[in-house]
Simulated assay, not measured.
Amino acid sequence: MKYKLIALDIDGTLINSSHQITENVKQTIKKAKQKGVKIVLCTGRPLKGIESFLDELNLKEEGDYAATFNGALIQNTFNKDLISHLTLKYEDLVELFNLSEEIGSRSHFYDTKTLYTFNRDISDYTVLESHLTGIHLNVTTLEEVPKDIAMSKFMMIDHPEILDECIKKIPEKYYEKYTIVRSTPFFLEFLNSNANKGSGISLLAKELGLKQEEIICVGDAGNDRHMIEYAGLGVAMSNATKEIKEIADYITFSNNEDGVAHVINKFILEER
């Protein structure tokens, strides 16, 4: 099978524990792109939060794309044209914030360019998110939020043991109304019910005229599940969660062992 697109999660997949892309991974991606393979970063981060990686990998040329906010936003990185943006509304914000208060979790949320929180005692995890993504943090109130907000995602954020208990308290109806994914032990993300990394890559594949079996998706966490299930070849990192390893077609090396380079070498660069 000749693979024509590889979708790569970032945290825990593309970058190592030092938050860097190794030279080996960089060069392998460069060779795959030169061969005509689409390289698509697919992440829970906003576009601004991956600009440095796109620059580093030369993925802002004509015909380059990225999937951000866990697949809720798909766009061309060259001219910023949108393929798809599936959002949540003000009413969803009210409902999800009330839920977070009720079950005891702190929270924050995004539109396309800003990270917001209502918590005056700002969580360390909100500060971490703002730092990692380079996104401006706005401490606000529900009354100050525009009623026409197009929210890319809402996040419950807390220490893993607290979040574990909060998750147990979420009524089933919320799983029917939203896509809910746990991207890290301390982040639980709520998206438009039609938004996930799998549907995002599927929409992009349709736009590009690619078949499902021509696509590789690589990830490590709960928010990667949909795209790994969708892919012609679903790949889990060796540092992935047990759930992700169980659904993957192939398990590569860890993010600290150039696992992405191994996948590209094995399934794209080597003659198969």
Rank of each mutant, 00 (worst) to 15 (best):
I264D: 10
T184I: 01
P160Q: 08
T13R: 09
R45N: 07
G134Y: 09
Y110Q: 02
S183E: 11
N239I: 10
F53V: 01
K113F: 09
G198T: 02
M155W: 03
V235G: 02
K245F: 02
I228S: 03
D220M: 09
R272F: 14
N239T: 10
D158C: 04
N98Q: 12
K206S: 05
L132F: 07
I10Q: 08
Y174V: 02
N194Q: 13
N138V: 06
L142N: 12
K113C: 02
F69V: 09
H85Y: 14
E229N: 11
L191T: 04
L5M: 15
I264F: 12
S100L: 06
A195P: 01
V37M: 07
V145G: 08
G234K: 00
T179S: 14
L88A: 09
D258G: 13
H85C: 11
V127Q: 06
L93Y: 07
M1E: 06
A66V: 11
T13G: 06
K31P: 13
L142R: 11
P185N: 04
G104W: 02
T117K: 04
S105A: 12
G259Y: 13
A236C: 00
K30T: 11
L208W: 02
Y65D: 04
D64K: 00
D92R: 03
E207F: 01
A67G: 14
A195C: 07
N98S: 15
S123G: 06
